[in-house]
Structure formats: structure tokens, C-alpha cells
Amino acid sequence: MAEKTQVDRPLSPFMIGPYYRPQLTSISSILTRITGNALIVGVILMVWWFLALAAGPEYFETAEWWITSWVGNIVMFLSLWAVWYHYLAGLRHLIWDAGKGLELETAEKLGWICVYGSVVLTVITVLILWI
């Protein structure tokens, strides 16, 4: 029977910088991770907002004041962009998982779609919400 042995497995080294020249594919990939993790801030604020809405008008005033203050607005605006970036980058992963779009040229094109697309979608969302 195979014995279970404890092996100190190597961690994945941080490649960008010392080993790899930063490229669109690697930077757009790491941005997926950063936006996904950073969205927890927006989610915490959102859950707080829901709790305050459930708790009554006075609590709600406080939460809404913070979330729609200029600091809150910046956080929510960046979160909106993060959602759209992570959204497009996620779709890109689904395409890659299907084994398509892996040629360098297509992969780079998909990277630019994530970068520009997320900005365009953020602006469109803000415009629609503003009107």
C-alpha cells in the first residue's frame, strides 16, 4: 500500500518581473484575481446597506450616507469597474476552458477586450443609472 508522506510542495513563484517580461496576457490575468478579491470590500458595504435597510430609517440614513459619500462613491465606482472587468475576464476563462482562443493573437485580443470593454461597460452602466 502506498504510504502517505508529507512533502513540502513548492509554491508557485511570482513570475512577473524577475522572470517574465510583463505582458498583456499575464497582467490581464492577474487583474482578474485582484478585482475578484477586491470586490469583497464592495460586497461588505452592500451587505451593510441591506442590514441597515432591514433595521429601519435611522440606521439606513447612516449607512446610505457613508456609501454615497465621496469615499463611498469612489469605492462603489471602482467596484463597478471591478465587476465588469472580472465579468469579461471570467468569460474569457470560459472560452479558454472550452479550448478555444488560445492562439497568441486571439489571446491578446481577448485581453484588450477585457481592458477596454470593462471601461466601456462601466461608463454605460453609470450613464444608465444616472438618467
Binding site: 454615497t68 465587476v83 476563462h93 470560459l94
Partner: peptide, 29 residues
């Protein structure tokens, strides 16, 4: 993969509903 496909359907509509409610005041929210 499963949850990302689910979220791809859920999130856009939610963004607009939540975005409209945010900052619209207690009664409206």
C-alpha cells in the same frame, strides 16, 4: 465554472436594480 456561468446571468440585472435603489432614499429602496 458552474458558479461563474450562474453569476454571468445574475449580475447584470442585479447591478441595475441595486444601482437604482442605492441613493434613492429609504422608502424607495
Amino acid at each position: 465554472i458552474v458558479s461563474s456561468v450562474a453569476l454571468a446571468f445574475l449580475v447584470p440585472t442585479f447591478l441595475f436594480i441595486f444601482g437604482r435603489a442605492l441613493g434613492s432614499g429609504y422608502e424607495s429602496a
